[in-house]
Lab assay of single mutants.
Amino acid sequence: SYYEILDVPRSASADDIKKAYRRKALQWHPDKNPDNKEFAEKKFKEVAEAYEVLSDKHKREIYDR
């Protein structure tokens, strides 16, 4: 789930989600993982997609249904 990707509970606040996104984006940024760039790019995209949905109140409500 998007919550698992960002490592936050379903009850996470918008601020918690933003902090988790920043932490995970740094962790999986391809430039930070030169030895495993392809895998890092995949993870980085997953993190971005999760944040896009969970950071938008309307999209998150739909996702949580």
Rank of each mutant, 00 (worst) to 15 (best):
S1E: 07
S1Y: 11
S1T: 12
S1W: 11
Y2D: 00
Y2W: 11
Y2R: 02
Y3C: 01
Y3P: 00
Y3N: 01
Y3A: 00
E4G: 07
E4P: 01
E4Y: 09
L6I: 03
D7A: 08
V8F: 00
V8Q: 03
P9W: 06
P9N: 07
P9L: 07
P9H: 09
P9I: 06
R10Y: 12
R10T: 11
R10W: 11
R10N: 10
S11W: 15
S11N: 15
S11C: 15
A12T: 02
S13D: 07
S13R: 05
S13K: 06
A14V: 14
A14L: 15
D16Q: 11
D16S: 06
D16G: 04
D16K: 05
I17M: 04
I17H: 00
I17D: 00
K18A: 13
K18H: 15
K19I: 12
K19T: 11
A20Q: 05
R22C: 14
R22D: 15
R22H: 15
R23E: 15
R23P: 02
K24S: 05
K24Y: 05
K24I: 07
A25P: 00
L26M: 14
L26V: 07
L26W: 12
L26H: 09
L26C: 13
L26R: 10
Q27V: 07
Q27M: 09
W28I: 03
W28K: 01
P30K: 06
P30M: 05
P30N: 05
P30V: 06
D31M: 09
D31R: 08
D31K: 09
K32I: 09
K32H: 15
K32F: 14
K32G: 10
N33S: 06
P34M: 13
P34N: 08
D35F: 14
N36A: 10
N36F: 08
N36M: 11
K37I: 12
K37E: 08
K37V: 12
K37C: 06
E38A: 14
F39R: 06
F39K: 07
A40W: 07
A40G: 04
E41L: 14
E41V: 12
K42D: 06
K42H: 10
K43S: 05
K43W: 06
F44G: 05
K45W: 09
K45F: 09
K45S: 10
K45P: 01
E46W: 06
E46L: 12
E46Q: 12
E46H: 06
E46N: 04
V47D: 01
V47G: 02
V47S: 04
A48Q: 15
A48Y: 12
E49M: 12
A50K: 00
A50L: 00
Y51F: 12
E52I: 11
E52N: 11
E52M: 12
E52S: 13
E52C: 12
E52K: 08
V53M: 05
L54P: 00
L54V: 02
L54T: 02
S55P: 00
S55G: 15
S55Q: 06
S55N: 08
D56G: 03
D56T: 05
D56H: 06
K57A: 15
K57F: 11
K57M: 11
H58E: 13
H58M: 12
H58I: 15
K59M: 10
K59F: 06
R60N: 02
R60S: 02
E61Y: 11
D64M: 02
D64C: 03
D64K: 01
D64I: 02
R65S: 13
R65Y: 08
R65H: 10
R65W: 08
